[in-house]
Design a protein around this nucleic acid. Structure first.
Lengths: 219, 219
DNA sequence: CGTTCCATTGATGTATATCAAATAACGTGG
DNA sequence: CCACGTTATTTGATATACATCAATGGAACG
């Protein structure tokens, strides 16, 4: 998909003209878009990280975190954004504005095909989240979360063993459906079990196999 | 979407030829499709009800229930079914076989557009499920479940106040991420609070407002 | 009319929320 | 660059909702 958007100028010379791209720095706390707004753009994260969430009454339900190299907002194509996307740390974002989506679709049917595939993948992501929730213990959820986080970094070419867990503990807790204190305690247990080395937001995976065992079999 | 599939023979005379439809009776326990099988058909439920689930290790994680008038399997278009669909009671199913999806897409671009919209809606369903899980109490989840069930019946023209909760308590429990006993107890509390009248699988909503209050504010 | 399956009810244990305090990290202005 | 105030994180003590286990009760069904 990234390939579709960013490359192949020779095979689709006019495609790039249909999408306005604009790169800009963003600071922590800044919104890329808010739930309910009509779709205008897809966002590519160049650096920094983003959390997306819905606000239900008082508390916010975190839908997911988005890391450098990932795309954001695709699921809103043709409708409205269904979550608010907020930077959790300073970074830089590339905004891809689709002025005329219908026209784009007509000229490049492959584009829509890609969209279908991607929204399906998005469903998988949601399902994964539902696996994180409910019925799984705090440690299972946290281990799965850290492994997923690590994998996503690796896929994009970053260090998947030693990295920064950029978001607040409270955000992780909201995402996993736990209390802040419970996340904290689970992390400490991982430290004592020599699965992780943790100092503040900086994390090093010491025993990946062990984490995987915790994520699946529990304990 | 149903409209797209079932009607408009004058505006798309050849569309119906691209889709083989076959109606047949199905008995409780029968599978419509299994997780991992390649996509062949979309299923329209004429009568009876269907549960879809994934088996994780020993226990089954229920993805959702599907009622008469609803479509099933759309999210698998182009890939494989990601869940197993099983009848929970006898009924009749209409199978819509897509022999040549690519060809269909080319001739009827509107079809793909619809697909995108629908898969997005599917995402909403998944999100709704994630709302049901985690952080919400047993009573909140059950109330939300019953209201959703009722709404879906109403939308299709059935009685949304007095109906049969066709699936087993254990299935509801799996769906909501609870234990069977917990579901049972919550139901009893709703009975004592005069929110519901329940006898076996037959349910009557006595106090919809009250249920809504429980579903959102808790208690 | 028993056999089987499903639902309810009870007793108990446990994971996790909650509340509160202590500590650490962080940013800001002097 | 340091001291301070602010916010995030850790840690402890307690409460509780729910799971689990087990027994009972009832409906469906041959």
């Amino acid at each position: 998909m990234l390939a579709l958007l960013e490359s192949n100028p020779e095979s689709s010379p006019e495609l790039s003209e249909k999408i306005l791209t604009k790169k800009r720095p963003c600071i922590a706390g800044e919104w890329l878009f808010q739930a309910g707004q009509p779709f205008t753009s897809v966002f590519a994260i160049k650096s920094g990280a983003v959390k997306s969430y819905c606000t239900l009454g008082d508390r916010q339900q975190i839908i997911g975190f988005h890391l450098p190299g990932e795309l954001l907002g695709l699921d809103a194509v043709g409708t409205t954004y269904r979550a608010t996307a907020e930077m959790v740390e300073n970074g830089s974002i590339c905004e891809l504005s689709f002025d005329n989506l219908a026209q784009l679709n007509q000229q490049y049917p492959a584009f829509q095909e890609q969209l279908i595939k991607l929204t399906s993948q998005q469903i998988l992501v949601e399902q994964r989240q539902s696996l994180l929730s409910s019925r799984r213990s705090a440690e299972e959820r946290l281990a799965a979360f850290i492994l997923d986080y690590s994998n996503r970094l690796s896929i994009r070419g970053f260090d998947g063993t030693h990295f920064r867990l950029v978001m607040a503990r409270q955000d992780i807790a909201d995402y996993l459906g736990l209390a802040e204190a419970t996340v904290s305690r689970a992390i400490q247990r991982f430290k004592r079990g020599d699965l992780l080395k943790v100092s503040g937001k900086s994390v090093e995976i010491l025993d990946r196999k062990g984490l995987e065992r915790v994520a699946t079999e529990g304990l």
